[in-house]
Simulated assay, not measured.
Amino acid sequence: MARVMMVCTGNICRSPMAEIVLRERLVREGLSGLVQVDSTGVSSEEAGNPLDPRARRVLAAAGYTDAGLTAHRARRIEFEDLEARDLVLTMTASHARAVRRLADMFDVSVPLDHVRMFRSFDPAAPQATHFQDESLLDVADPWYGDTSDFEECLEQVEAAMDGIIDYIRATLLGVDSQGGS
């Protein structure tokens, strides 16, 4: 089974939104039994808190029904998470740096392509050619905004999904788009 983890700041907005969207897409693609998806934050300040109500409303309005809408509880990333995941998708460049620092601090061997910017899978997103350019791929932070900011975040999450699904199929599961190997 492939394991994919989303990472944002507090694990109450962006990363659980992406987790819920990916999990529902995997169901539609017939891959749900082959991929485990979860999310974490780089901060512990929201630990134990549910999905932000604004995120829940925007996801529900868009038709997402995943149990994570009500069951999600924020948690902070631990070094063990890095060792146990095949792909770590970060919402911003600062999250990517925090994940890489965590790996270095605990001497966890993480291949370069193991930690990726979430929006790097969106063909319409700006292209980052080096780690210093990664901030071009940041998923907008809706925390200080209103409903429209959460809708923008969801749009950015959805725009990357086809690329993420293709990557999971080809790289993590070793199957083509028709399900063959």
Results as ranks from 00 to 15, higher is better:
117 M>W: 03
124 A>D: 07
111 P>A: 06
115 V>E: 04
94 S>K: 08
123 P>L: 00
100 R>L: 15
86 D>C: 03
101 R>V: 07
84 A>E: 15
112 L>M: 11
100 R>G: 08
107 D>A: 13
90 T>H: 09
86 D>H: 06
99 V>C: 05
112 L>C: 12
113 D>R: 15
114 H>D: 05
121 F>R: 00
103 A>G: 01
91 M>F: 05
113 D>E: 14
105 M>Q: 12
105 M>I: 09
127 Q>L: 15
119 R>G: 01
95 H>E: 01
109 S>Q: 15
100 R>S: 10
96 A>T: 12
113 D>F: 10
97 R>V: 12
124 A>T: 09
112 L>Q: 15
119 R>H: 01
117 M>N: 11
123 P>T: 04
100 R>Y: 07
86 D>I: 05
113 D>K: 15
88 V>F: 06
105 M>N: 13
98 A>P: 11
125 A>P: 11
128 A>R: 01
120 S>A: 01
119 R>P: 05
108 V>E: 04
125 A>N: 00
90 T>P: 10
121 F>G: 03
103 A>T: 03
85 R>H: 13
117 M>R: 02
86 D>Y: 04
114 H>N: 03
86 D>N: 02
110 V>I: 09
113 D>Q: 11
128 A>F: 07
128 A>Y: 14
115 V>S: 12
123 P>H: 07
98 A>V: 08
110 V>P: 02
96 A>M: 10
120 S>L: 02
105 M>G: 11
85 R>E: 12
98 A>G: 04
120 S>T: 03
113 D>I: 07
106 F>R: 13
96 A>S: 14
92 T>A: 01
110 V>K: 15
127 Q>A: 15
116 R>Y: 03
106 F>G: 09
92 T>C: 00
85 R>N: 14
110 V>M: 03
109 S>T: 14
118 F>M: 07
117 M>K: 06
116 R>Q: 03
116 R>H: 04
